[in-house]
């Protein structure tokens, strides 16, 4: 398989704290790639650097064969990386439908003139945005909440809505930051089905997760971060037995 994303030597410091040190990893097209690690290991920092929210200090990322313009979230989204947030960030006072429609912004282009004059092109585009948004809501299973305000959706539905909004940007890589956090077993199982479906539809998935069972069952390959350093990267079965990983998770000297 060819690689979709190549992160090389990513480093990030916050003052004196080295949050990420020389992190290199490769995500192959079509796989579900897990990024795990204890609390504070730098998973979300890596996410934020990758998606442009934080400026990196070192390293580079090549995505789909082109260098990624790090530090510019909308350019990263345009290149084809969409993300969700650990602490859900929906547009709370917009409806579920509107949230997904905002996700189409990037792939549509009607400007002020078109918006004001509503030429047939603009009307068609608007209708297409609406149609696609409905499709995506149905895809993640919250279409019956289309007209509800995002903030009034149940927690699990908010997670799904955020995924729908991310998918609206037509990503090649969908990056999910702890999507199962706070979910019960049933919801987690449904989420797993959804993520597998997304991959089956041709979107590569990068998953940060605390739920080790979910990651090990779902991911094709897993990387482990500890204190900002990548300590392992392999298929789940190998990673699970890696002594360094066991140390990181269970504490050195265990067993």
């Amino acid at each position: 398989m060819n690689s979709l994303l190549d992160a090389r030597g990513i480093g990030k410091r916050f003052g004196g704290v080295q949050a990420l040190k020389d992190v290199s990893l490769t995500i192959r097209a079509g796989e579900i790639y897990g990024l795990i690690g204890p609390n504070g290991a730098g998973k979300t920092t890596f996410f934020n650097v990758l998606t442009g929210l934080y400026a990196k200090d070192e390293g580079e990322v090549v995505f789909a064969g082109v260098p990624l313009k790090l530090g510019s979230p909308h350019e990263v989204a345009r290149a084809g990386i969409a993300r969700t947030f650990q602490n859900i960030r929906l547009f709370a006072n917009m409806t579920a439908l509107e949230n997904v429609m905002v996700g189409r912004h990037l792939r549509t282009k009607v400007g002020v003139g078109g918006a004001v004059m509503r030429f047939s092109k603009a009307r068609e585009e608007e209708a297409a945005i609406r149609r696609r948004a409905h499709e995506l809501l149905r895809y993640v299973g919250v279409e019956h909440h289309a007209q509800k305000l995002a903030k009034n959706l149940a927690y699990g539905d908010q997670r799904r809505l955020e995924i729908a909004r991310a998918l609206a940007t037509e990503p090649k890589l969908l990056a999910l930051d702890e999507p199962a956090a706070g979910m019960n077993a049933t919801e987690t199982a449904e989420l797993r089905t959804l993520i597998e479906g997304i991959r089956a539809d041709g979107v590569t998935v990068l998953l940060i997760e605390h739920d080790v069972k979910l990651v090990m069952g779902l991911c094709d390959r897993v990387a482990v971060l500890d204190y900002g350093i990548k300590i392992a990267e392999d298929v789940p079965d190998v990673v699970k037995r890696d002594p360094q990983v066991v140390d990181a998770y269970l504490g050195a000297g265990h067993g």
Binding site: A82, R89, F91, V102
Partner: peptide, 22 residues
């Protein structure tokens, strides 16, 4: 319009709006 929605999105959550590619 999509521009109006983008304005509301920025007002609601600028970081999420950026991540959505705005």
């Amino acid at each position: 319009s999509r521009i109006g929605r983008a304005w509301v999105a920025i007002r609601e959550d600028e970081i999420a709006a950026k991540a959505c590619g705005i």
